[in-house]
Simulated scan of single mutants.
Amino acid sequence: MQIDIPLSRRGLMIGAAQALTALALAGTVVATETLPKMTVTRDPNCGCCGNWIEYIKAAGFPVEVLELDDVMPLKAKLGVPDALMSCHTAEIGGYVIEGHVPADAVKRLLVERPKAIGIAIPGMPVGSPGMEVPGQTPQSYEIAIFSAGKQHVFARYRGLQQV
């Protein structure tokens, strides 16, 4: 059964307006899901750094990788406290991300925009992103948020799950 619908200028204008509205809304959804570019500086010989970079890319972050034989001067320049240092350092949205931080924590930081230098996971806890070890139970760990001379707990995780 075929239905004939007469075309009128008014009908076409309403249809066009509805189509444009749908496209505008779709564009807004895509725009809100766009994440800023992350620059990761790492030692070229560190395999776990590469694992974390692949994980963070899979989470939707565009990533630029810089390889340096000595990342320590950059960490010092960016204000990462010695006690919070890990194997790689990332910069995103005006913040420093130190170590194997889960993507959800990075996204939360970017949404909340606290006054801080950044967030960090000291060391390399088993089960944190990029440090998964088959057959080993993920460790619990804390993500510290830090600024000049201060730090406190930003989140607690076990593996990839916030606790």
Rank of each mutant, 00 (worst) to 15 (best):
L74F: 01
V63N: 05
V80K: 14
I56L: 12
I92G: 05
A26Y: 03
Y95N: 02
E98C: 10
D70M: 03
T34L: 09
C49A: 05
V29W: 08
M72C: 01
A22R: 00
N51I: 05
P73G: 02
A59Y: 01
V96P: 15
A24G: 08
I92V: 15
E98R: 11
K75W: 06
C87Q: 02
R42D: 08
L68H: 02
D70C: 03
E67L: 13
P73Y: 01
W52N: 09
T34R: 14
K37I: 14
E33S: 06
L25V: 08
L66E: 15
K75Y: 04
L78W: 03
A58R: 05
M72W: 12
A58G: 04
V71E: 14
V71K: 08
H88C: 06
V63K: 07
Y95D: 02
S86N: 09
V40A: 15
I92P: 10
D69A: 13
A90Q: 11
V30G: 01
C46F: 06
E98W: 08
L84H: 11
G79R: 05
D70S: 03
A90T: 05
V30D: 05
N51G: 11
A90V: 01
T89R: 06
A26C: 00
K77C: 02
V96C: 12
L68S: 04
I97L: 09
A76T: 07
V65F: 13
V29M: 11
G47M: 10
L78P: 07
G50D: 15
L78C: 03
E33Y: 04
E91T: 04
P44V: 00
G47F: 04
A26N: 01
G99E: 06
E67H: 06
N51D: 15
A31K: 04
G50R: 15
G79N: 09
I56V: 14
C48N: 14
M38E: 10
G94S: 05
W52F: 14
A59D: 09
I92C: 11
D70N: 12
D82F: 08
G99V: 04
V80H: 13
L25F: 14
A76E: 09
L25E: 14
K77R: 09
L23A: 12
V96W: 10
C87I: 00
L66G: 03
R42H: 08
I97F: 09
Y95G: 07
K75S: 03
